[in-house]
Design a protein around this nucleic acid. Structure first.
Lengths: 206, 206
DNA sequence: TAGATTGTTAATCGATTAACAATC
DNA sequence: TAGATTGTTAATCGATTAACAATC
């Protein structure tokens, strides 16, 4: 049953569930129903139950889901119960902004290295990390066991950076550059491009 | 036929087509087929033809699509042929990063005002704009005819900012805060949350 | 017990893809 | 003309939602 292929849509909702569950937990809420979750997250309760049921039977009939237990389970599913080291290339404003989110990610995922190709930026401190030159990327990624790479360089350099990440053995890449990057099948890429986001938003203006 | 409901998936692909078409145009490519586009963008050619066909007959059988003409058409569809003013609340690193993308957006969408609730930040210059206090938000948005609002404040403040935007009559909101904000039906919200993006990426690690 | 809510099956809905006549 | 490629219909695939027996 673990081998069942889970759709990307399901995986994308899990972090959203998790975030709200954490909020409930901080408010000392013990239990939550798919009804409650659906209302708050604007999702269909049946969908939430089905999403969770792909991974196990986490709820109790007549009661709902234990908040603490469900948090634990979703964290396991998303592999957030282990430390995951992340490296970032592109020490601009965006790179800086992302680095500062470290605190939010609660020590599970952590940006442990920052690189940039521009000589002027080498050595600058970003969130307690010294910006390193690209020449140190592969060695550093091996040494720190970095598994995820974040790209925050201009579009023209994104593919090169992706290639370096792949060479270094990174397993997944989050690309903020407004360009589609090509990587081998075994590397997972997500695109987080706010320009396309803004442009599609414009469509909905009157 | 213009009244046909276009799915969100289609609208999200249009900016991606546009971006690549602009690239082709800069390389002086005259014509492109759905085949070419599909290969480069990793999409099914039939899907691309169908997406475009929702809005008109933009191609020529046996030839493909005229790059310049298709750019023009997609820009019209996305309303990028008109000036759209954007306001941003949250003058942190992320807000600063987004403001700097103005150049990229080529004068169509333009961030014309930046606000922050923190007194220390008022008056600071971000990309030639003085950060304004929240008390000036509604007046400024009216005066500058701002139609889109961007939220780059911490999660706890995002809903308040959204409420202010709605009061000011903004038509659409792009929310970067890791929380789901509620707005009236007539206001469109897109969520661009990189923490959930990173967390779902973790799922695909081995 | 009665009420609530899960897990899951079946029904529905919507999106993607294949196929091909039309035609440049 | 022959080859290429569109626009579009039909087929397929997948995701969402409704419904409900099981059960806390």
């Amino acid at each position: 049953m673990k081998s069942l292929k889970i759709s990307e849509a399901v995986v994308r909702r899990l972090p959203i569930y998790l975030r709200f569950l954490n909020e409930l937990n901080m408010r000392n809420v013990q239990t939550v129903s798919s009804q409650d979750l659906g209302q708050k997250l604007e999702l269909n309760p049946a969908q939430i139950r089905k999403d969770l049921a792909y991974f196990g039977e986490f709820g109790k009939k007549g009661i709902g889901y234990d908040v603490v237990y469900l948090i634990e389970k979703i964290r396991q599913i998303l592999k957030l119960d282990q430390h995951i080291n992340v490296a970032l290339v592109g020490a601009g404003n965006l790179g800086r902004a992302l680095s500062n989110y470290n605190a939010y990610l609660r020590d599970n995922m952590k940006i442990v290295a920052v690189f940039d190709a521009v000589p002027d930026k080498i050595g600058a401190r970003i969130n307690n990390l010294a910006v390193q030159p690209m020449s140190e990327l592969i060695e550093t990624i091996h040494r720190l066991k970095v598994r995820i790479g974040i790209i925050t360089v201009p579009a023209g350099e994104a593919q090169n950076v992706a290639d370096e990440f792949v060479k270094a053995g990174v397993e997944a890449i989050l690309n903020f550059a407004p360009v589609i990057i090509k990587v081998p099948n075994e590397v997972r890429v997500h695109h987080a491009d706010f320009t396309t986001e803004l442009q599609s938003l414009a469509y909905y203006l009157d």
